[in-house]
Design a protein around this nucleic acid. Structure first.
Length: 751
DNA sequence: AGGGCGAGCCAC
DNA sequence: AAACGTGGCTCGCCCT
């Protein structure tokens, strides 16, 4: 092998190298990057140019030849040690460099501690702080803790920004080293301020700090602004809402030019109570400082946007403490039931496994790869759906092999067991409850999400693990058909509103009109009603004719005709959808009824291209409307097709999402408003709102609850919005979630 | 060993 | 060529 020719690094190479270094600082690099970077450091920058070249400039072949040249001792450039430069060596070097970098960064940070960052370590300093706080109508606040578990970790320090006095403090209370006050002393001194709802607090992700303060018995009031929640309203597409990432990205707009380092960067896995106070001060005080600046910047934008500000002030901000209380409430798990049910499932699964081995041999049925090999290669089952092994495909193959039904049952039971029946009890905290978290700003449409565990996707059988504590009952109130009602309101379609105003069944009425059948033939369980229900949902979700056809087991042409008839009968629904597409093309965003925005950056240009291509295609074919299948149409030129499919996916996806975001988002707004009403009502009664599943609110109430109380609960929800159609709420009462009884029956049997 | 990712599946 | 919107969790598989 010949000696690789040195590659001269020019200025642009060096720039790219710097970029690579920057990239490497942000994420765990691949070992090749490490190897190369370490190599550069190891050899020094004065060595041959070949070593100064950016890795990304070397094609794979060249890199390989260089490596093997080194291995074969063919590179004799005076870097003898290089041939011993192994991966392990590189990683070690990398870590050393990182540590050195960390240390020097920390040293540098401490040296540059701003003058108005102060530690509060003594009684007199604390007293002075309390005095100064009396002059502040609004402050920024943050806690530093031993970890991220709000039910087990503890506060090790607190930082505050005093905007009027123009200084920032860090109050260590549980650091392992350094002079500091006791946590109880500090909290006692601060509690008047923290619990005073007239003193505004600005926090980043307040829910977390509020939980933490509750760990030490302090209920924070007067949350004025949460920069994380507000950021989600200002840009629902933000890739990360971590304070440091927001500072890096937007800092230049509010005077934070330097990129801040994340906790991980600086401290890795070290617990914050081990961090020396001088470092802790500059890190922690900067957090509230940053939060405050971010707040001021966000205020400008919210005020400019008006409606969004109102949404924040009236809805999202008050909802934060509702979330805190919901999470604190938690869900009680029936542990005996869980054990017993788990055993039942395990034995049933064991038997199914025996049958599966008989049918399919010794394979792992949980593995799609092994399963598809068995089903399609060995057993030669027809590949109805491209070798897929999902439920839908398996159901289609049910008649083809006797083992499939066992497989389906096995899927169902193992899912239930592993994801729910075994997993939920593992999350039980010391109070016997699970405390999942609810996130009000995790979805782009404004709906709630839930995790650790997700309480919004429990199947009925898993919900049965959750019970009301003694003396309590669970109440589940759900909005009936909220999304169609929102559509009826927003589209303004009088015909769609009619059944709601007259108390008729929506889908039967729709079906009767669209299919031109007497209402008797469109009743509950009729095929027309079923079709209509699927069809309406398809319109709200923007389903393609292909999918709709397969759902209804009709042809694409029939589906197209069906939707055409629907739009003809309900023209305002059609125009709402078309108008929305136009609107999103023009503005690149849509809004819910309450001003929540869903943005589609870059859509305008793509939509223009898309529309002009549609026009061209229609002209060539001499038709008004785009044909159902463009790809197979022989009359359309190839390059036109190619251009069309380049933008088709993105544009149609944005259009579907825009229509859906208005409907789903408005429904979410209404639910959030309802939750505020319910929270107030429940608090007054000493009850608890404990969760939400999109259109349903869950409450924990005394078992003395009356029919009248339930009416008030429902009123809290129906009065949440005044639409052109009435809102309807159905309520179930239960001791065990998943075994609910309609309110009517409950009170009838109680009497 | 542990992270990333896709398949699959649960909910509305 | 892809085919329905919003989520989160577990598993197998593949990678380092």
């Amino acid at each position: 092998m010949g000696l690789p020719k040195p590659i001269e690094a020019d200025a642009s190479d060096r720039i790219r190298e710097a970029q690579l270094r920057k990239e490497m600082a942000k994420r765990e690099p691949t070992w090749e990057e490490v190897w190369f970077s370490g190599w550069i450091s190891h050899t020094g920058t004065t060595k041959k140019a070949i070593f100064q070249t950016n890795l990304s400039n070397l094609d794979k072949e060249r890199l390989k030849s260089i490596k093997s040249a080194i291995d074969a001792d063919e590179i004799g450039v005076g870097v003898e040690s290089l041939k011993k430069f192994t991966k392990a060596h590189a990683m070690r070097l990398w870590r050393d460099l990182q540590d050195q970098r960390k240390e020097s960064v920390l040293k540098d940070m401490v040296a540059k501690t701003p003058e108005n960052y102060r530690l509060v370590q003594t009684e007199s300093q604390l007293e002075q702080l309390i005095v100064d706080l009396k002059e502040e109508p609004i402050i920024a606040f943050d806690t530093e803790t031993t970890g991220l578990d709000v039910y087990n970790d503890t506060i090790v320090g607190m930082s505050l920004t005093l905007p009027r006095a123009d200084y920032h403090v860090y109050i260590p209370v549980a650091h392992k080293t350094g002079k500091q006050l006791k946590r109880s002393v500090v909290l006692k001194a601060l509690s008047a301020m923290l619990t005073n709802s007239n003193i505004g607090k600005v926090l980043h992700n307040a829910k977390y700090d509020m939980h933490m303060l509750l760990r030490h018995g302090v209920r924070m009031r007067g949350l004025a602004h949460d920069t994380r929640v507000a950021m989600a309203l200002l840009n629902e597409n933000e890739p990360s809402y971590a304070l440091k990432n927001l500072a890096t990205k937007y800092g230049k707009h509010f005077g934070f030019e330097d990129t801040s380092h994340t906790f991980e960067d600086l401290f890795g896995k070290t617990c914050f109570d081990e961090v020396p106070l001088d470092v802790a001060l500059v890190y922690a005080a900067k957090d509230t400082h940053l939060t405050w600046r971010l707040y001021e910047w966000q205020r400008q934008h919210l005020q400019r946007l008006g409606k969004l500000d109102q949404l924040y002030q009236e809805l999202e901000n008050p909802l934060i403490e509702v979330c805190v209380d919901m999470e604190q409430c938690g869900f009680l798990i029936d542990q005996n039931y869980a054990r017993q049910y788990g055993e039942e499932l395990r034995s049933e699964i064991y038997q199914l496994e025996q049958s599966l081995t008989d049918h399919f041999g010794n394979i792992n049925c949980n593995s799609p790869i092994q399963l598809s090999r068995k089903l399609y290669d060995e057993l030669k089952l027809p590949e109805v759906n491209a070798r897929s092994t999902d439920v839908k495909t398996l159901k289609a193959l049910k008649d083809k092999h006797p083992g499939i039904e066992y497989l389906l049952k096995y899927r169902e039971l193992t899912k239930l067991l592993s994801t729910y029946v075994e997993a939920l009890p593992e999350r039980i905290k010391s109070d016997g409850r699970i405390h999942g978290s609810f996130n009000q700003v995790a979805t782009v449409t404004g709906r709630f999400s839930s995790n650790e565990p997700n309480l919004q996707n429990l199947p009925t059988n898993a919900r049965k693990l959750i019970i009301a504590p003694p003396g309590k009952l669970l109440i589940g109130s759900d909005f009936s058909q909220i999304e169609p009602r929102v559509l009826a309101h927003i589209s303004g379609d009088k015909h769609l509103q009619e059944p709601y105003l007259n108390g008729q069944d929506l889908y039967s009425t729709l079906a009767s009109r669209v299919f031109k059948k007497p209402i008797e033939e469109c009743g509950d369980g009729s095929k027309y009603r079923k079709m209509m229900k699927v069809g309406l949902l398809a319109c709200m979700y923007g389903t393609s004719m292909f999918t709709l056809a397969s759902q209804l087991t009709i042809t694409v042409e029939e589906a197209h005709e069906f939707i055409g008839d629907f739009y003809k009968t309900y023209p305002q629904v059609h125009s709402f959808i078309k108008d929305t597409h136009e609107l999103v093309k023009e503005n690149e965003y849509v809004e819910t009824l309450y001003g929540r925005k869903r943005r589609f950056p870059g859509h305008r240009q793509k939509a223009k291209v898309y529309d002009s291509l549609v026009k061209q295609i229609c002209e060539i074919l001499g038709v008004e409307e785009l044909p159902l299948n463009v790809w197979r149409n022989k009359d359309i030129p190839r390059n036109l097709k190619r251009k069309f499919y380049e933008v088709k996916g993105d544009v149609e996806s944005a259009r579907r999402q825009s229509v859906n975001a208005i409907i789903q988002g408005t429904a979410a707004d209404v639910m959030k408003r309802a939750m505020l009403n319910l929270y107030q009502y429940c608090s007054r009664r000493g009850w608890a709102l404990c969760g939400t599943v999109h259109d349903e609110a869950l409450m924990m109430v005394d078992d003395t609850v009356t029919e009248c109380d339930v009416k008030e609960i429902e009123a809290c929800m129906t009065s949440a919005a005044s639409l052109d159609v009435p809102l309807k709420v159905d309520t179930e009462i239960m001791q065990r979630w998943g075994e609910g009884v309609k309110k009517g029956e409950w009170f009838a049997s109680a009497a």
